[in-house]
């Protein structure tokens, strides 16, 4: 392809070669290039500096830059594997790869476990789950009495915490989500299969030959 010369993609901080990123992920080279169009779009919504900051990430999710959200913030932090406080293109592609319909189930299970292990102790604790339930209630304006929340937590930990030590480890989480596959629905984005159709403009900026894509 290469219809139009690239307009300085390599000037983007953390820009990585699409061929290199495709080799590391489920994405084809064309899909990585289409993701770059999405990346640019999100990363230029507040400050156009070639990276995605947390504000831009939350804005993309909520269309509201003032909103703070525990879950969006947690996902951002997990995408930010190098703990730089911003996402570069490589971070973005490698993290989204886990959400691809063809990504390994095991990767989705581990990512979802980390998502809910808010304090990174290697366990999902009851207090963390309660905090997330309260955050959900705040976000949705759904109202639940404290005793209802405790009943939900009791039921959840009875099912998930099989050794009944008050916390859910990765092995327990693994068994729990296999019995409740709907919990992994958030970990798969069917849209990623059609990313080149969603961002066809990648063709105009492609730097690779069709044969390589």
């Amino acid at each position: 392809m290469g219809c139009v010369p690239s307009k300085g993609r390599r000037q983007f901080p953390g820009y990585e070669d699409p061929v290199f990123l495709a080799a590391q992920t489920t994405f084809s080279v064309s899909e990585v290039e289409a993701l770059f169009e999405l990346f640019k779009s999100i990363g230029s919504s507040v400050v156009d500096e070639g990276i995605i900051n947390k504000e831009e990430f939350v804005l993309a999710l909520f269309k509201n830059r003032k909103k703070e959200n525990l879950f969006a913030s947690r996902i951002f932090d997990l995408f930010d594997v190098k703990h730089k406080g911003v996402l570069d293109f490589g971070d973005f592609v490698r993290a989204l790869h886990i959400f691809h319909p063809s990504a390994p189930l095991e990767d989705k299970i581990v990512f979802s476990f980390k998502l809910y292990d808010l304090d990174n102790t290697g366990f999902i604790e009851r207090q963390e789950v309660k905090l997330m339930l309260l955050a959900l209630l705040g976000e949705s304006e759904m109202k639940l009495a404290d005793e209802t929340i405790e009943a939900i937590l009791d039921k959840t930990f009875l099912e998930a915490d099989t050794n009944q030590d008050g916390k859910i480890d990765l092995s327990e989480w693994h068994s729990f989500v296999l019995k409740n596959p709907s919990l992994l629905r958030i970990m798969t984005l069917p849209y990623l299969r059609d990313i080149t159709t969603a961002f066809p403009s990648f063709v105009f900026y492609s730097e690779v030959d069709e044969a390589a894509a």
Binding site: L38, L61, I75, I152, E159, A160, S182, I186
Partner: peptide
Amino acid sequence: QPVAMNAFELISMSKGLNLENLFGT
């Protein structure tokens, strides 16, 4: 009936966990 659901089913309803929205930009 929220009480019939487990906590994670409820939590996964959060808009902040729905990355589909990223593609709407």
